[in-house]
Computed example of a mutant assay.
Amino acid sequence: MVLALQSGTFIGVGVGPGDPELLTLKAYRAIQAADVVCYLENEAGQSQSLDIAVEALKKPIKQQLHLGIRFAMSRQRVAANLAYDKAITQIQVHLKQGKTVVFLCEGDPLFFGSFTYLLERLESQYPSQVIPGVPAFVAATAELQIPLTVLKQSFAVITGRHSDAKIKAALLDHDAVVIMKAGIERPRLIALLKETQRFDDANYLEYISRDQQRIIRDLNQLDNVAGPYFSLFVITREELTA
C-alpha cells in the first residue's frame, strides 16, 4: 500500500437509522473533529444523513466545520457510478492536503452503505477508518421488542432486489429473515411470504426511528402496493429452537 505524502484520513461514519440519539459518541467526536464532511444528497439537495448529524450535534455543521462535499445520487447504476467517481475526485483534493474527511452514512457504513463504493475507489491510497452505526434492522427489532435470534435459530439478511428463488430459499431455510429495501418490491414480497407460509411471521416497518415511523404487525392491514425506499420486513418464528 502506497500512501500519499502528508495524506489525510478518510472516515466512514455511521449515523444510525434516523434517531439522532442513536449516534455513537465516537461518531459524534469524529464529526466534530473533521476538516471536511461529505454525504449523499438527492436532486433537491436534501440529505438524510446530514439531517441526522446536525440534529445530533445540536448545531449546523456549516457553522462548525468546513462544508463537505455534496453530490446528487441516482439509483440508476451508470449514473450512480459517475456520481461516485466525481465524489472521489473531490474528496481526494482534500485528502492530498492532509485533511480529515468524514463521510456520513445512514445506518452502518459497510451494511449496504455507499461508503463501500467510495472506499473501493480510493484503492488504499489514503488511511481510512470506519465508525460503525446502528443498522435499520437492529433498530426495527428494538421497536418491535422481539428477538431476531435465540438459542439455535438461524438468521439471514436479504434485499427485495434478490430473485424470487433466493428470497424463497431464505424464508424456507432460516428462522429469522430481514428483507431490506422492500420499497417497490412490496407486492412481490407479500406474495412470496404467502407462498412460503411466512406471512403470519412477518412484520413490516417504514422509516425506523424517524418521525414518520410506521409499523404494521398484521400484514392483512398492509396495502398490496409499492412502498417507500426506507422500508423492510422482519420475519421471525414464534417458537424457540431448542
Rank of each mutant, 00 (worst) to 15 (best):
L67T: 15
L67A: 14
L67D: 15
G68A: 14
I69A: 12
I69E: 06
I69Q: 04
I69Y: 09
R70T: 14
R70P: 09
R70S: 08
F71D: 06
F71P: 11
A72M: 14
A72F: 09
A72R: 09
M73D: 13
M73K: 13
M73A: 12
M73T: 08
S74V: 04
S74A: 13
R75I: 08
Q76S: 14
Q76D: 12
Q76G: 14
R77C: 05
V78R: 10
V78F: 09
A79M: 07
A79G: 10
A79Y: 06
A80T: 12
A80R: 15
A80V: 03
N81E: 08
N81R: 12
N81K: 14
N81I: 11
L82R: 02
L82A: 07
A83I: 09
A83G: 12
Y84N: 02
Y84S: 00
Y84K: 02
Y84W: 13
D85Y: 00
K86L: 11
K86T: 11
K86P: 06
K86C: 07
A87N: 05
A87Q: 05
A87C: 06
I88V: 06
I88L: 08
I88A: 06
T89Q: 09
Q90H: 11
Q90I: 05
Q90Y: 07
I91E: 03
I91V: 08
Q92A: 04
V93F: 07
H94R: 12
K96Q: 13
K96D: 15
K96I: 13
K96W: 15
K96C: 11
Q97G: 13
Q97M: 10
G98Q: 15
K99M: 08
K99A: 06
K99Y: 05
K99D: 10
T100I: 11
T100S: 07
V101K: 00
V102M: 06
V102H: 09
F103Y: 10
F103N: 02
F103S: 15
F103R: 00
F103Q: 00
F103H: 02
L104D: 13
L104M: 08
L104F: 15
C105W: 03
C105K: 07
G107L: 14
D108C: 15
D108V: 06
D108R: 12
P109G: 04
P109E: 03
L110V: 01
F112D: 07
F112L: 08
F112Y: 04
G113Q: 04
G113S: 04
S114R: 02
S114T: 01
F115A: 15
F115N: 06
F115R: 11
T116C: 03
T116A: 04
T116S: 01
T116D: 01
Y117G: 02
Y117N: 01
Y117W: 09
Y117S: 02
Y117E: 00
L118S: 00
L118W: 05
L118K: 03
L118H: 01
L118M: 02
E120T: 02
E120H: 06
R121L: 00
L122G: 01
L122M: 05
S124T: 14
S124E: 13
Q125V: 12
Q125H: 09
Q125W: 04
Q125N: 15
